[in-house]
Write a protein that binds this DNA or RNA. Structure first.
Lengths: 238, 238
DNA sequence: CCCTAAAATTGACAGCGTCAATAATCTCTT
DNA sequence: AAGAGATTATTGACGCTGTCAATTTTAGGG
């Protein structure tokens, strides 16, 4: 069961066409003057995918749409990503890399541990605001395959970028119970993550609208980050 | 361009069949002995939809699958919900109703404001844990239509159930700036919502695994809720 | 009792993910 | 340089999906 269709040359040799007619693929390429091999289709697909993500959201991002926008045939992505989950996972991995970099950069811009923590929180939400589609994809586990090395590494990197700042802010008090440490870390993460998700889902619009004057989500976030360590931390260290 | 196909009687009168043959729909119904009109298809579809949601997650929930599991034809849902967004929105509305009820019930079981707040937080996460698919659907804005009255009302109810407890816990200090009030509210919401989302997405597994002994997510959550008001609130009230 | 409105079915269409088969090109080995 | 094999891309097909238009069946009110 190897050959079912015949090659173009076979057809010509059989005399079924008088003039040598260009094969379909060749004809299509003539129109756009594109070589058969794209050369960097993988990157082109990822770029197209992110553009679609920005414009139409995660539901508009399909394998075929990405292939179209990258100027390739509908099945071309298979070579580079296997399936849709593969493409989404690689895209999410890129997202996590950028995310980690921004978190680290924001933290390094500050020296005081308290300000570092808040800067990290603002950077977290800011990333979600600027790349809503990508951020939502990054936390849509059912569409991702964490067994992909690129994704796992990128996720680990982001988790580390998060944990670093939190740990440092808490000091390395040696006698501190592991549960308390974990809770501090998860609380900080949950706070900014929940805020980001609610914000992107439009769930905070009703609340923001009732704020005085020209106050917006930024002020709300800033005020929120003040609650847990007002000024220079008054509570804690029991 | 009104009539393209002919009715069964037309076919019979034209002499194309000698004995009156049962129409396809009638034949199919004979097999299951179901009447043409279901009677409560709307409820059956919602039940089927939730069962699919529990078993296969949100991506397995399709209009056709729901119709199949409810024993109806593939286009039957259109009469009751219009389109897929309609079905998802009505299902989410039911989810929000139950959610509100559980939040209120949990809060009413406690008298102390502090304990009330924590009970509400635990109920929030507990609901997400027991109904992961439904909870995720409820916060997947791009798949919902908030202009549907049922959904909007249910969402408003849930927001109220949330705000009530938070406001009460904070006392009605009259001079308190609106921004601080909003921030307190959003902070509490973000904390439990972020925790729920991270939990359902499996993002906390790595952290939970490193906890001592038999400690799990419940303990982590409890410890987290202690951070912001240790015992009877030490910070705040500046 | 009919007859209109509602409920349900049927059939069609385009878009999707995926697969198998094929084609074109690149690259290595000799 | 030449050819073999691997890589990259295209084509066509399949079944699934949401949605629509046309039709059929039933219920219920005048």
């Amino acid at each position: 069961m190897k050959k079912k269709t015949r090659s173009g040359s076979e057809r010509i040799l059989a005399g079924e066409s008088h003039r040598p007619v260009a094969a379909p693929a060749e004809r299509a390429r003539k129109k756009a003057n594109r070589p058969y091999h794209h050369g960097a289709l993988r990157e082109a697909l990822l770029n197209a995918a992110e553009a679609i993500l920005d414009k139409d959201g995660i539901n508009g991002l399909t394998l075929r749409a990405a292939a179209r926008n990258a100027g390739a045939s509908h099945a071309a992505p298979k070579n580079h990503f296997g399936d849709l989950t593969g493409l989404l996972s690689e895209l999410a991995a890129l997202g996590f890399q950028r995310f980690s970099a921004e978190l680290r950069a924001a933290a390094e811009a500050e020296t005081d541990p308290d300000r570092r923590g808040k800067a990290r929180g603002r950077a977290y939400v800011h990333f979600a605001e600027r790349h809503p589609g990508l951020f939502q994809l990054m936390f849509r586990s059912e569409r991702l395959d964490p067994s992909r090395p690129a994704l796992r590494e990128a996720m680990d990197g982001a988790a580390q970028a998060l944990a670093d700042v939190v740990d440092e802010g808490q000091g390395e008090s040696p006698g501190r119970p592991p549960l308390a440490r974990a809770a501090q870390m998860v609380a900080a993460w949950s706070l900014v993550h929940g805020f980001s998700m609610l914000l992107l889902d439009g769930r905070l619009a009703a609340i923001t609208r009732q704020l005085p004057d020209g106050l917006g989500t930024e002020d709300l976030l800033a005020e929120m980050l003040e609650i847990r360590s007002p000024g220079k931390r008054v509570l804690s260290t029991p």
